[in-house]
Nucleic acid binder design. Structure first.
Lengths: 223, 223
DNA sequence: GCATACTGCATTGCATGCAAACATCCATGC
DNA sequence: GCATGGATGTTTGCATGCAATGCAGTATGC
């Protein structure tokens, strides 16, 4: 046990190297859906395709498993499939975490942060005419990011991100009806109001309700 | 992309092998505190001590990093240290997740599960005379497990466990004053009442309050 | 005496080889 | 025709080697 300098600053969880590159690529592929659920992941295959040895691929697998994106099955790994039941579970966890974040934001966010949030929301409404759906996803992300940041709890932010469940949203965003888009915007509006009123209980409630709305939409899509 | 049989059943995240063994051992050592915060982890060192090659050690490191127990620092890994600020963050996440779980349990738990919970609590009170502190930890774990199970959301359960924050509790459990033990038991009592009353809002509130109580205790210890 | 450059060493990053485990396929028996 | 057992091939689990990286300690210049 040698003496060691302190590391109180938050440090990247993983350094930048080839393993991390591979990890990012695989993660992206799974999230986008270009590697499909239940598809089996063969080390030597992927290694060859990505032009690295099996080692970084193996290590990436472990990290993906930690994220819950793949699970061990028999000898190897397969992309996890989310049954309707599991999707419900995912959204419940989101409701818990994002709801809590909204509650914290209502208590802690500096006034400037709330103003910025309002600006994000407003600029989105202004630009809604173009009505590009890619834009919609980007806006939604920015809006949530702002709230999560305002909650001032990095661990909470990490957990929300890590869950990597956003990919459900990415896959379905293109399919939302105009009415659903409208509902979503109204939800944002309501949330902004609750936050600027500095009402933690209401903010949490609204944020949760929005998540459960999302769940309904997803469940409708997969049926 | 070969056709593949389905894997809808939930599968263990990692198989049982030497890597997993090493992982468990290291995790235990960190959680118990026998490897201290800010201590540096040397692959070849650990490999020799555990009598395996560096490969399973490396892979364990990645999983530990995924759990947030170690962080990359310079070239290697160090055991993460939790500043007071981070401890607050940890407990806020616990409040979010465990509170939510209590709320779900109030809505969903079969009557039998609540009866079982009451029994756990009661048997503990009956046996409190012995007042062994190891027993206290075990009881606390059982109590929480029962609630988490009753919430009927496996992902939520995984997240609560994974956070691996219990180790704060293990480290301090021996140091609780009798008064604090008493408070904790009262908390359990209150929670059982809220759950059997099937009141989700109250249950969530009580569970959260208990977590924040715990935070106070921990913060008092480290000062 | 302090800063800066250089050299050696500890330690990781990645590749690869080998053996064991497991699935698959086919043959055989009932 | 179905089940059971064995052989074969694929894929992982783990060990190990080599090169590269960055740290430490020392020497050198100012």
């Amino acid at each position: 046990m040698p003496p060691l300098r302190r590391t109180n600053q938050r440090v990247a969880e993983a350094p930048s190297n080839r393993t991390t590159e591979v990890y990012e690529q695989l993660r992206q592929a799974i999230v986008e859906g270009s590697i499909r659920p239940n598809e089996r992941l063969i080390e030597s295959d992927l290694a060859e395709r990505l032009d690295v040895s099996r080692t970084p691929v193996r290590e990436s697998m472990l990290r993906l498993a930690g994220d819950g994106l793949i699970v061990s099955y028999r000898r190897g790994w397969v992309v996890r499939e989310h049954s309707a039941e599991e999707i419900r579970e995912v959204f419940e966890v989101r409701a818990a975490l994002e709801g809590f974040a909204a509650g914290l934001a209502a208590q802690r966010a500096p006034d400037a942060a709330l103003k910025a949030l309002e600006a994000i929301h407003q600029s989105y409404i202004d630009s809604i005419q173009g009505s590009s759906r890619g834009h919609l996803v980007a806006h939604n992300d920015a809006f949530h990011e702002a709230i999560i940041a305002a909650a001032r709890n990095q661990l909470l932010a990490e957990q929300i991100h890590r869950n990597g469940q956003y990919y459900f949203i990415h896959r379905i965003a293109g399919f939302l009806s105009d009415e659903e888009v409208h509902t979503s915007i109204e939800g944002h509006e309501e949330l902004v109001r609750a936050l600027t009123a500095r009402d933690p209980v209401l903010s949490e409630q609204v944020a949760r309700d929005r998540v459960f709305d999302g769940l309904e939409k997803v469940l409708n899509r997969i049926r």
